[in-house]
């Protein structure tokens, strides 16, 4: 009876699924205007402290895990958790021990989320070129060819979110291929800032760092 009523009310929804809305990419001007304002994300807030206690498994650490997967909120929560997770991993690495990074959330719709610019690239705190030497489940291992910024490890391990192993951030990591990787706060910046090492892309890394 409840479902029937819900469906009946949905039928008079003036913004039902057949009504089109604008996408973020169609609203760049609005987004840029919003982001030109100051935000509250300063490293000293208590949230940062709290975050350093999260565990290393993205899915297990996601409070949104109890919410139905089909709901959009679930992956926003997951994305937030992954950012958190990676920050811990970075702190634990040092010297020539492998550096651990998270691959962040993978959603094809996000592939163009930040317009590429060398300035933004230069703000990333980790950047290197590496050869993929292993793809094992949710773990990708790269041997570093060149460090541009943020480390001196010989190897970097990227952890993919569960279920996203095959195509991390839309980038098919293949053994033997070279990739340019950048990361901010321990999360790989896959949105145009990480990818197959082409001469053009390498040029951008050289210019940025």
């Amino acid at each position: 009876m409840s479902d029937e009523l819900r469906n009946r009310i949905r039928r008079i929804d003036p913004m039902g699924p057949d009504v089109e809305t604008r996408s973020v990419s169609e609203s760049r001007e609005m987004m840029e205007a919003v982001m030109s304002n100051p935000t509250n994300t300063e490293p000293t807030t208590s949230h940062r402290t709290e975050k350093s206690h999260q565990t290393l498994r993205p899915s297990a650490a996601t409070p949104g895990g109890s919410i139905a997967i089909s709901r959009p909120i679930a992956w926003v929560a997951a994305a937030m958790a992954i950012i958190v997770v990676a920050a811990v991993a970075l702190m634990n690495s040092g010297g020539s021990a492998p550096l651990f990074l998270s691959a962040g959330e993978a959603d094809p719709a996000m592939m163009s989320c930040i317009q590429f610019s060398v300035d933004i690239l230069s703000d990333m705190d980790v950047a290197f070129e590496g050869t993929v030497t292993g793809v094992d489940g949710d773990q990708i291992t790269l041997d570093v060819v060149t460090w541009y910024k943020g480390g001196d490890a010989e190897q970097v391990q990227i952890t993919a979110p569960l279920g996203m192993e095959a195509l991390i951030g839309g980038i098919p990591f293949e053994i033997g291929s070279d990739y340019l990787v950048s990361a901010s706060n321990g999360v790989v910046s896959y949105c145009g800032y990480t990818g197959v090492a082409t001469p053009e892309f390498r040029g951008a890394f050289e210019q940025a760092f």
């Binding site: 919003v34 996000m110 901010s184 999360v187």
Partner: peptide, 20 residues
């Protein structure tokens, strides 16, 4: 700058999901 990039990144991810 780093913090700002990170904030933009998080915001873009969030916005893509809640925009509609």
């Amino acid at each position: 700058g780093t913090s700002d990039t990170h904030a933009r990144y998080r915001f873009e991810m969030l916005a893509a999901d809640v925009f509609d």
